[in-house]
Structures are given as C-alpha cells and as structure tokens.
Amino acid sequence: MGAYISVPVWERTIAQRYGLKGQRCLGCGAVLFPPKVVCPECGGHSFEAASLSGRGRIYSFTVIAGGGAPPEFEWQANAVGSYVVGLVELEEGPRIIAQIVGVDPRAAMAAPLFEDSAFEDSGGSSGDKGKRSLIGLPVKAVIRKVYEQEGVIRYGYKFKVVSEV
C-alpha cells in the first residue's frame, strides 16, 4: 500500500516539528534550523545538535485569505476565513516561516506596518495590541494542528505573540 506521506521524512522531522531541534555548525558556530546538510554561512558540514528556545520576534508577516490558501490549509481558511503567516527570527538567529496564532488577521492588516512597532518600543508599553504592527512583536513557539492528510493529523510549531519580558 502506498502513501502520499513520506514516512521516512515524517519520522526524521519529528524532533524539529515537536521540539524545535536544530543544529550548530562546528565550523562557524551558526545555529541552523531546520537542520541542513551544508552550512550556508561557511560551507562546513559538521554539526552538533542544538535545541532552539522557541522564542523570537516577528520579522515579517502576511495574511492568507480564503482562496489563497494551499490545498492542505483549505480546512483552516474555510473555518476562519484567513490566517496569519509570519517570518519569525528566532533568538538563536534562524528565520523560519510559520503561522502566527491568536491574532486577528484583519487587525494585523489594518495596523500600520512599522509605526509603533516593537522594534522601537522601549518595553513595558501596554498599548492596544490590535493597533500595533505585528512586526517586531515577541513570540514563542507552540504546538498546533497544521493539517490532516490521509487520516494523519500533522502537528507542528506555530508562534504565539507573548508580552514583553
């Protein structure tokens, strides 16, 4: 019996999807996520395992609305209309693409992109989050359902906005 899901890839990526397990290049020290065969920074190919904290900031984002969703995300778009996808810069350096949960996509689109963003924020601001740009906001990784395929629920990381520490 065949399966559309690649079982080896599925199993190999569990540690990254569930535990944000990445690698550190032994050549230049760069932290890479997801794990790679060759270091894009120095071309090295010796690594050690490195766990990422899951903390980071939203570097950029977009809103995926209804018809724009890839087939595996149609269920989500059908249920809630639209959702936010962000480029998150992790504390350890890597930038990864993932959904941003717990924010209203319409408010995210309506807010000015950079004005009053958290990058200029000196911290401690308790302004209305709905009016703030998502860019620069601190996030943490959470586990959520990503999609279902062939009767398998695929869980993986998404990011949730957290208050400034």
Binding site: W75, Q99, I143, R144, Y155
Partner: peptide, 13 residues
C-alpha cells in the same frame, strides 16, 4: 479552542 487546537496541543502548553 481554536480550529488548530485539541486536547493534545493544549496538553503540551
């Protein structure tokens, strides 16, 4: 729960 939450994801949190 949000559409992408269930007993498992809440348990992890």
């Amino acid at each position: 729960p949000e559409v992408d939450e269930d007993a498992f994801t809440m348990a992890v949190e």
